[in-house]
């Protein structure tokens, strides 16, 4: 083959082995606890007995089927970085907090305007919270290698992060 770096048979090789689900969740909560807004989420998990589960999904995804049950899904062959996992966990836990506070997605038959208004508000709040956690963790020297802000941009939240940081500078 012309380019030894690209080999289609690599596609069939298994990804690197992962730690157990419980260890990944435990470590992620431990890291979240190191920053004020993350600590709030960890307290929420303990106080409300939130169950966190990991599932296999083609793309990184979070899912909240019940108010006390959250899922983080990722491709087991290509799981992404620990920082992505931690930020995804922060996002879905924030969503669980919204549910616990009675801020729920409208029923499916609700008018489109209600869906737009409520769902977008929930999404905005969740993204803002992830930005806060990422910025707080990024200031801690022990987590420099995690590159939380770069990961947040990789997740598609570049514009939200810029807006968040601009607002922080102005305050």
């Amino acid at each position: 083959m012309n380019n030894p770096d690209i080999n289609l048979n690599d596609f069939f090789k298994p990804g690197r082995p992962l730690p157990s689900d419980s260890l990944m969740i435990e470590k992620a909560l431990e890291i979240l606890e190191a920053c004020p807004h993350g600590q709030q989420l960890v307290n929420f998990v303990a106080k409300k007995s939130i169950t966190i589960k990991i599932t296999a999904a083609p793309q990184p995804v979070t899912y909240l089927p019940e108010k006390k049950l959250v899922y983080i899904g990722f491709n087991r062959n290509n799981p992404g970085t620990p920082s992505r996992f931690i930020l995804m966990l922060a996002g879905v836990l924030r969503e669980a907090q919204q549910e616990a506070a009675g801020i729920k997605h409208p029923p499916l038959h609700a008018p489109l305007s209600e869906h737009t208004e409520v769902s977008m508000a929930k999404h905005e709040d969740r993204v803002w919270y992830i930005c806060t956690v990422a910025c707080e963790l990024a200031t801690l020297e022990m987590f420099t290698e995690y590159k939380f802000l770069d990961e947040l941009r990789q997740m598609g939240h570049n514009e939200a992060l810029e807006l968040y940081m601009k607002q922080e500078r102005e305050n």
Binding site: L8, F11, F12, P14, G15
Partner: peptide
């Protein structure tokens, strides 16, 4: 469409 490799998709 349903199998995703460690270095992206085919």
């Amino acid at each position: 469409n349903n199998v995703h490799g460690s270095d992206g998709d085919v």
